[in-house]
Every structure is written in C-alpha cells, then in structure tokens.
Design a binder for these strands. Structure first.
Lengths: 326, 326
DNA sequence: CTGAAAGCGCTAACAT
DNA sequence: ATGTTAGCGCTTTCAG
C-alpha cells in the first residue's frame, strides 16, 4: 500500500489529526510542527487520498463532463477549457461521451453522480423532464439547453443567425434555406426562431429543412433538398462542409452558385477551401464559465439561485458566401 | 445524504454484509433473499458508492487519460474510443490536458494516481527517466512513445511512410522532402528513419527539414523550405494543410506542381480541397487497445509482462498527390 | 447462507 | 496547539 497519513504521523511523532490539519487547515497548526510534518510527508512521498477525504467531507473534488460526441470538433475546445479551469480550482474531470444516446446519458449521470460534486451537461439530448428529475441526484450546469430552474450557459446563436441572414440579404439573396440539426437540440431551435424572425423582417423566403444529422454526411445528404435556395445556413460547420461537398458533386459552385454559412468556427471550417463563413461559438469561454458556475452551485448547495449566462456569438465572414447569382 | 447500503439493509431486514454480497458476490446469497434485497434497493434508488468501495477493495474503477492537447484533432477520436471501451469494462475516465507541458504532466499523474487504477499516457512529453520513476506510483500504458519495460501501443507510421515514398516514386517523383515534427516526438523519428530507408531503396533524394511546429502555422512556415522538391511528406495533416496553403499563396498548385502527403487521416484533411493523401493512424483502435492492456496490467499487478502492441497504418491516396511535373 | 466486527484513509467535533 | 474518538459507505474475514 501507498504511504498514508498514519505513516506520516508515526514518522513525525504527532497524531494523525495533526497531519490532517497541516494539509486541510494549516493555520491551526504550529508553524514549526507544520514545516516538520510537511518535510516528512514530502520525504515519504505522501499524497492525500482524495477519495478517502471525499468520504468524510462529502466533496469529491471531481466533476463530470458529459458531451454528445467527443469527436465532433465543436466539443474539444470546450472540454479543454473546462478541464483546465477545473484543475485551476483543484478539481479533476471525468469526460464521457453519450454517442448522442439519451439512455446512455442518463446511465452516465447516474453512475457518475456519486463520484462527482457536479456535472456539466453539454448540449444534452435528454428530455427536460428527465433532467429535472435527475438533478435531485447531483447538481447540474447545462450548456446550450434551456432547462427551467437550472443554471445554464447559453451561446446566443440567435444573434449570429440574425447577423447571418442580414449578411446574406445584403448580398442579394432572397431565398434562403436553413438546415436544422437533430430534434431536441436547443441550438437548432434557437437558430430556427431567429432566422425565421430575421427573414420576416427582411421579407425574404426561408425554407426550414430538417432534421439533419449534425455531421458531414448530414450535409451531403441535404444537398438535394436545398435546390431553389441561393444561400444556406447550416446547423454546424460539419453540415456546411458536407453540403459544400454535395453541392460541388452536383456541379454547383460555392459561393458563386450557392452561399453557405456554418456554425461553430471549427478547425475544419477554417482550413477549408473556400474558407467557411460561420458563426463563432465561444466554446472555450462557455467551458470555463460553466465550470465556475457549477462550482459556485456546489458551494451554495440547495440554496443557490439558478443563473443564466448568455454568451455572445458573431458572424465571421470568409469565403463561402458571396453575391447572389443573377 | 443519499441512500446507503445501511438503508437497504434496514428496509430488507438483513445485515449490511448481506446487501453488500448481493451486489459484489451474488452467488453467495440465497436466491430468494437476493431478489428481495435487489427489489428493495431498486425501490429505494440505491446505487453503490464506488469511492467507498474503492477504499476497501483498492480498485477505484477509474482510469486517467493524459494527452498533450485535447484540441489537436489527432486526440479526440482516441479519447472517444478509450472512454467508450473503459465504460464497457465498467470504468470511468478522467481526461486531462497537459498543454504540452512536462511539468503539468507530472503534476497530473501524481494527483491523479490515488484516484485511478492506471493511467494512459498519450504521446507524453515527459522524459523516459521521469516516466520510469513515476510508474512506481501507478500502472501506465504509453501510446506513441517507446519506454523500456512499459506496456506500449505504437502506431506503425514507418510502414505508412514507406508506402508513401513508394507511392510518390511510382508517380515519378525523385526529389522528396520530409517535414519532421517536434524534437522528441517518437512518431517523427520513426517517419524519418523509414522515409530515409525507403528513399535509399528507391534511390531517390530525401531532404529532411525540421523541426516544425505540429500545426497549420508550422506548415505555412515550411512552404519556403521545400522548394526544390516535387513532393513533401509532412509530420501530420495540419502541417500538410498549412503547407498546401503556403504553396498556394506562392502560386504553386497541389498536386500539379507539388504533391503533399499528411499523417493522421484527420477530419480537416478529409474535408480539404484537394482531399489530402494521408497515412491513417488507427487512433480509435489504439485507444481501445490501450485501455484493454491497461486493465490487464491492473489485474495482473506487478507480475504482468510489458506488452508491445504495434498497430498497422496505411496510405490513403486521395487528391493531394499526382504525377511529378515534367 | 447470514451476522458481527474490523478497518480502508481521512476529517471533524470534542477534549485536553 | 494537539490528541481522542467516532464515523463516512463499503468489503471482508471470521463465526455461527
């Protein structure tokens, strides 16, 4: 077995509780004793056992981070930021992938709940009802989903979507298509509402097409459906990239024949030819903020008031949008 | 507090140890008692506390996964696969990002070690000496790095690199450049060795240029250095993509003027125009295998023999390579 | 087959 | 300022 608090106590000639205090409440320990204990602990290579500590304190100092698909380029920056922020706060994070499966999501929450102080639900696929039920087991913070009474971090795609429609209209487009995402996606619904309202304001036609798989395949498959529109706003960059590919296969040029806008500002979009016009999602900021809100909620216990953080998005105009064909 | 084993025991009129057995050694419990206890546990919503269990069993059923950079597109598929495989085996996984910092890596290993049964080190930046020292604290499996006496999963880029050189030679290229990766990268060194040997076999010229940053920027920056070669094998897809961009800026066409080969078969490469010819890295398979080897090592304890798994890579010919210019 | 009791590593009153 | 004691939730001998 590894070296325990008891070994340190024995070696320094003090009681275990004194050793415990040197680590968790140093100010309660005589400076001299403290330095000695610290030195001996160091020498022995002692590291407090966080799991054992959790048993008595009720705080595991672990967080759970549940995402639909780790390999979706939208998530890695968020995971990276959340994980870095958590470590800064002396927290470790379990990362789990649900494969877009609500049942898996629930299962994960339940098995993880005892091992973490809170969980970050990113773009959950679970029903709001289920989420509200599960919240009794463990504190949540939800990213990109509106759940009544829960602390939430939202990225305001609506804002970006309005800007995108405005941009397309200014380029002369009058028939615009929207490729929605999976059913149950808050982001998709937000985009739909905002795009519809903006289309109304500008008095242009908006065809809402979906649901589509949030992948390149989904975009390729949608290439047939967008005929008749000169510009397409896509659920995310992957769909946009797939769509461009599908369009190209059909002999259509982007942006000459069709303008395409994505969402996420992901790496593949930035590297694409043509470079993708897209709505940036502040994923890293969202990850950091979600962790801080979660930790605040954990600290506050039941008493905490749910917060709603709304992060701004913006349109980045690159090469996949251009003047509407004559 | 949540419902504990004690609550279940009380409610079912048996001793806690019987409840414990129904979960961890069902065959030792009378079938009738078992079903009753199970039913009551279910009704109460009881979930065993894994942390508490870990305290007595010494098995946390957690794994650590340490990578240099979560946002590097090479890693997400590996993380996803490792995490999925772990869950299949009833393990949860902590994911941590070192930001390419060896000190951070060490710190993470140390704080994580008490909370996990083993850790997966992916493309570690830590020195071999340090790794060998740390292994006393927790079982390791290393991916894409050769460490004496440690179980290792390697992706055989050498094989792919030889195939790439062969492919280029068959297209008529006689002057080929190799853009290496960061110093200390095992993958980069493997590529160098294999490419050099293949170039020798085919009697063509190979210019080894590096080190280069493993990013798009690194590729852009290298565009000046490859003049004189008609084909370039790059450390990874990002470098290749950057190189293509840099070459394009200089008025050179890919593959007409220069052929470019990447490594990773990453999403951005697949979506690029022209689609990138690349060496596939079996990252998902590596993730799964690494988890299984780690779990095997955990089970075997000290007695286990280190294994060396070598996964095959292969060349995927797409659009960024073509006949050498006349 | 089941109960009793000890203990995993640590913290948190409570004493001293 | 430090020691004592009692658990946290669970598993594991050892009896019965």
């Amino acid at each position: 077995m590894a070296v325990t608090i008891r070994d340190v106590a024995k070696a320094s000639g003090v009681h275990v509780s004194t050793v415990s205090r040197t680590f968790s409440a140093p100010h309660l320990v005589n400076a001299e004793t403290r330095t000695r204990v610290l030195a001996i602990a160091e020498g022995l290579g002692y590291r407090p056992n966080r799991a054992a500590r959790a048993l008595t304190t009720g705080r595991t100092h672990n967080l759970g981070l549940i995402v639909a698909d780790i390999a979706n380029p939208f998530f890695p920056p968020l995971i990276k930021a959340a994980q870095a922020q958590a470590r800064e706060r002396d927290y470790h994070v379990f990362v789990a992938d649900t494969d877009e499966d609500p049942l898996m999501e629930q299962e994960l929450i339940e098995t993880l709940s005892k091992q973490v102080d809170g969980v970050l639900l990113c773009s959950p696929r679970l029903s709001n009802r289920m989420i509200e039920k599960l919240r009794a087991e463990v504190p949540f913070v939800v990213v990109n989903r509106r759940v009544k009474g829960l602390t939430t971090v939202l990225m305001d795609v609506g804002q970006g979507a309005r800007a995108a429609i405005g941009h397309l209209v200014s380029l002369g487009h009058r028939r615009i298509a929207l490729l929605t995402g999976p059913d149950g996606s808050w982001t998709s619904e937000e985009m739909r509402t905002a795009a519809a309202s903006a289309a109304g304001d500008f008095d242009v036609e908006l065809s809402v097409l979906g649901p589509n798989e949030p992948t390149e395949q989904g975009g390729i498959a949608a290439a047939d459906k967008v005929a008749g529109s000169t510009a397409v706003l896509c659920y995310n960059d992957l769909v946009a990239l797939g769509l461009i590919e599908g369009l190209t296969d059909r002999g259509l040029k982007v942006p000459d024949d069709v303008s395409v806008v994505g969402v996420d500002d992901s790496l593949p979009g930035r590297l694409n030819k043509p470079k993708l016009t897209t709505i940036t999602m502040p994923t890293a900021a969202a990850g950091r903020m979600a962790v801080d809100l979660l930790l605040a909620a954990v600290g506050a216990g039941e008493s905490g008031t749910p917060t709603l953080a709304r992060l701004e998005t913006s349109l980045v105009i690159r090469e996949s949008t251009g003047a509407a064909p004559a």
